[in-house]
Amino acid sequence: MLQVEDLHAGYGASEVLTGTTLTVKQGTLVALIGANGAGKTTTMRAISGGIKPSRGKVILDGQEVQGLDASRIASLGLAHSPEGRKVFGPLSVEDNLLLGAYSRLPRFFGYHAQAKPDLDRVYDLFPRLRDRARQSAGTLSGGEQQMLAIGRALMARPKVMLLDEPSMGLAPVIVQEVFRTIRRLKEEGITLLLVEQFAKSALEVADYAYVMERGRIAVEGTPAELGRNERVLAAYLG
């Protein structure tokens, strides 16, 4: 569903990604782990168009999308829940969700009726969001904002969802809740690419995983395989 080949990208003169290659098959959950600054978030941003790759390919459902604007890539079926959640603080929870489905809703009127089934689905998944539908998103707690960010990405009915550091800055109890949610998304058959600093938790839910070092993939394999890899154990699971 999502293929990344030999991706190079960076900020200004410094190249952060030096040839990343990975594949996410339909209906699977793939984890991307690695140290801070290894290039995980940059990979995500280069895939979703936040930065333009200088070399390499990103193939979404058979179509090359590298170099397109982020908004174009999003409307082609890629939803990216960014690091730090980035909910629209001044807007209400429901508006945040509606905007998640922006690319397939009418621009002026009647959008609410059309988005109703998806809204209900997200509210069923996160009942707490339904209670706070009218509240502005900035007033939610960190955990609720993370739920909203995931819900917003779901609204797009994406072909692939990128989840960047969903546990960042959350208390351990909430982190566990986030991971339960991710498990549920996986059960619903959503194709997911997950970046996570809690390597172990990520490996527990993943079907396949990549370990990044210095802008490229250093090791890959099923969680079981990685669990047997001395280097991975020492560097990321200790």
Binding site: P82, K86, V87, F88, P90, D95, Y102
Partner: peptide, 17 residues
């Protein structure tokens, strides 16, 4: 409003800034 609040995040929703 979304673009005003967070340009990058809005792009990720398919909103062309």
């Amino acid at each position: 409003e979304a673009v005003s609040a967070d340009r990058d995040a809005a792009e990720l929703m398919g909103i062309s800034s």
